[in-house]
Simulated scan of single mutants.
Amino acid sequence: MLNSSRNIALACALSALAGYVDGIGFIHLGGLFVSFMSGNSTRMGVSLADGHWQDAAQALGLIALFVIGAALGSLIVLGRGANRQPWVLLVEAMLLAAAALADGVGFPGLAIAGIVLAMGLENAVFQIDGGAGLGLTYVTGALVKAGQLIAAALSGGARWGWMPNLLLWAALVAGSLCGALAYHWLGLAAIWFAAGAAFVISAVLALTAR
């Protein structure tokens, strides 16, 4: 899927957006994630071992919301009509905007729920024919792929085939840095910027649809 400059640019933009949102969520939730469910799963297991039932339940709730968001994104992709990417991102933008609005009127719990749903949904952008597609809100797979492609390059394969996956990782790190800085400045209201970015990316995709 990272086989064209367009897809690489889109994937990096969305990975940066996910990193931005996750940086905000990580600080706000005190160490839990809104897009990295492997981390939440580990936290859940540790909390269960320590007898911290409320922390374990919170982690499980985030995981469940993420799965629901991923399912919603897949339903959009599997719907009628071609070029579903703009629609997925439009719904993501609306969820992020609703989250920012919920926080603004004093419902931070609802805000987090909307954010997690949006992050799960984003992973459907590169879904094809009902498959799992490309993960955009977590980069463990991208790092594994980068390592494998580095090995392939050292064995005579494509010299720079690993670069797109490394760029995906770098985009998420850069986004999380910006998200953390924005949260220290604006708190959860910094999600408004993420909603705006998702709207812009959706519009660009719709206008440049092939």
Rank of each mutant, 00 (worst) to 15 (best):
A97R: 07
T137F: 04
Q127W: 01
L181W: 00
A93N: 09
L101R: 03
A132L: 04
A197F: 12
A100D: 04
V116A: 11
L96V: 09
G156S: 11
G175V: 06
I150D: 07
A102D: 07
A99L: 00
Q127F: 00
G133D: 12
S176T: 03
I128S: 12
L95A: 01
A198C: 14
G120R: 02
W192I: 05
A100Q: 05
A170V: 13
W192L: 04
L117Q: 12
L95Q: 01
A198E: 15
W169Q: 10
F126V: 11
A111I: 06
I112W: 02
L136H: 15
G130M: 01
L188A: 09
M163P: 14
V144M: 12
V116M: 10
F107A: 15
F193L: 13
L136P: 15
A146S: 09
L134A: 08
I112E: 05
A194W: 05
A153G: 13
L177P: 09
S155C: 06
L168E: 06
L177I: 12
F107P: 15
L181M: 07
R159Y: 09
V173D: 04
A97K: 09
L188I: 11
V173M: 10
I115Y: 00
A171L: 01
A189K: 10
N165Y: 12
I150F: 08
V139C: 10
R159N: 12
L168G: 14
A182D: 08
G109A: 09
N123I: 02
M163N: 04
K145T: 12
F107R: 15
W162A: 06
G187E: 05
L181C: 02
H184M: 00
L177Y: 06
G133S: 11
F193V: 12
V173G: 10
M163G: 06
G187Q: 02
D103H: 15
D129E: 14
L117S: 13
M94Q: 11
C178R: 03
G161Q: 01
L117T: 14
A100S: 07
G175H: 08
Q127D: 11
